[in-house]
């Protein structure tokens, strides 16, 4: 089965992100396909490369990056949601003349059309929110 996952929750504000990450891992272990991960609303905070939690706590942004890299997943971040929350890639840093970019290398910024398109090509779209 083909799944699109929508992650709406920030990493440490609700169970949404961790539940989505566990679902994604379980689906892949059971030979299911992930059409696309779409990070939207507060879920864009999962895609920062600058999170530095204590070593005895789960580092969810890093866990997402690892899962995406290991399985070569398509991970899209809504650009409007990201910009208003201060998650920028290098192009947006330059466009808005900010001092830093923080989007993880495994993620790409794009529009809501990517969510609609992925849904049209998936058997199920599952939202993880609160």
């Amino acid at each position: 089965m083909k799944f699109t996952l929508v992650i709406l929750g920030a990493p440490y504000s609700s169970a949404a992100s961790f539940s989505a990450w566990r679902f994604c891992r379980a689906a892949l272990e059971n030979n299911q396909q992930i059409t696309r991960l779409f990070f939207y609303a507060d879920g864009v905070h999962n895609t920062t490369a600058l999170a530095a939690p204590p070593q005895d706590e789960i580092d969810l942004p890093a866990q997402w990056s690892t899962l995406i890299r290991e399985h070569n997943l398509d991970a899209v971040v809504c650009i409007a949601a990201a910009l208003r929350r201060g998650v920028l890639d290098e192009a947006e840093r330059d466009r808005y003349r900010k001092q830093a970019a923080n989007l993880g290398a495994e993620f790409s910024l794009s529009g809501l059309g990517q969510l609609i398109e992925a849904t049209a090509h998936s058997d199920r779209t599952i939202t993880f929110g609160h």
Binding site: G111, L112, L115, I116, A120
Partner: peptide
């Protein structure tokens, strides 16, 4: 999201 879906003819 609703507007995006409608824009993409869903």
């Amino acid at each position: 999201t609703v507007l995006a879906g409608a824009t993409f003819d869903q």
